[in-house]
């Protein structure tokens, strides 16, 4: 009870500080934090579905790209919030398609399917742009740093609250049971197909919304920028770094990773990916449960 109060107070203070930041923070801090929020959304939504069920989705960049492209196509014509909603909806339906088609795929097959889906979308759009519309890229509406910051803060907040709520509900437990033994969970009355697909769709729509907002930072996008497969892999790295067992794991992973990336791209621009490669190898070998694992072990030894 005490612990819960303290953490609630901490969250409240952090949130208060974050909401007021644009009034005293530097423009750079807003940009950096928006970036962090983006990765928090991508990572937390990835863990929302893939963490408990054990299904490895590599389609994050498809949903992210769908959001970016939605922004590119309609951001000048309709209000921002509507664009966000449309981006979320399109990602929802893309996830629905993936979910229905790949329902029976497990393990590596599901991962390969989702990865292939991103490539399919990318090349379909490239073909469409060159052959039908005759364009090669699109200009996106530009928003102020402050607007992007607040949108991303809100989105990250909603994502985290939703995930927390889901994890504590009976559906969170049911998702976990799918990862533990899918056949058994079907046999105790859980509609595993529906639960998997719905969770996947909802988590993906957050990614789509995120894509819409972040697209406004690029001013110009083409299919190759929008559907960059890196956005499928980075959230997984972040989840591994932070540890996917607890909700604060992916959040911490996203924060640490994004911050490191910021520093390293300026200090060692040519070798920073090398550093991340080494970091990943180290974390997977020695910290299979990520940062969460270290903190948990510390807490346990303290209690004992």
């Amino acid at each position: 009870m005490n612990f819960k109060l303290i953490s609630l107070a901490l969250i409240g203070v952090t949130l208060f500080f974050l909401v007021l930041l644009p009034f005293f923070g530097s423009p750079y801090s807003l940009v950096l934090l928006s970036n962090i929020f983006m990765y928090v959304v991508l990572t937390v939504t990835w863990v929302m579905f893939c963490g408990p069920t054990g299904y490895i989705s590599l389609a994050t960049s498809a949903f992210f790209g769908a959001g970016i492209y939605t922004a590119a196509v309609i951001s000048f014509k309709v209000p921002l919030l509507l664009t966000v909603l449309v981006g979320a909806l399109i990602s929802f339906f893309l996830a629905l398609i993936i979910g229905i088609v790949s329902l029976r795929l497990k393990g590596i097959y599901f991962a390969m399917f989702t990865f292939g889906f991103v490539e399919l979308l990318l090349h379909f759009l490239l073909w469409y742009e060159t052959n039908i519309t005759g364009t090669t890229g699109r200009v996106v509406l530009t928003l102020s740093n402050q607007t992007v910051y607040y949108m991303m803060l809100a989105l990250a907040f909603v994502t985290i609250v939703f995930t927390q709520y889901l994890n504590n509900s009976r559906y969170g437990m049911a998702l976990k049971s799918i990862g533990e033994n899918e056949m058994a969970s079907e046999h105790i009355g859980i509609d595993t197909a529906k639960l998997k697909i719905l969770t996947y769709c909802v988590s993906s729509s957050f990614v789509g919304a995120c894509g819409v907002v972040m697209a406004t930072r690029w001013t110009y996008v083409d299919p190759k920028i929008a559907f960059n497969p890196l956005y499928s892999f980075i959230p997984i790295f972040m989840a591994i770094l932070g540890g996917a067992r607890k909700l604060y794991g992916p959040i911490l992973g996203a924060i640490v990773f994004t911050y490191l990336q910021e520093i390293l791209t300026t200090r060692i621009p040519y070798y920073y990916m090398l550093f991340f490669g080494l970091l990943m190898v180290f974390v997977i070998t020695f910290l299979p449960e990520g940062i969460v694992g270290i903190i948990d072990r510390r807490l346990k030894t303290k209690i004992n």
Partner: peptide
């Protein structure tokens, strides 16, 4: 309802 020959409990619960 049923049980399984090869036990299928949810191991981490």
């Amino acid at each position: 309802s049923r049980t399984f020959q090869d036990v299928k409990v949810f191991p981490n619960m």
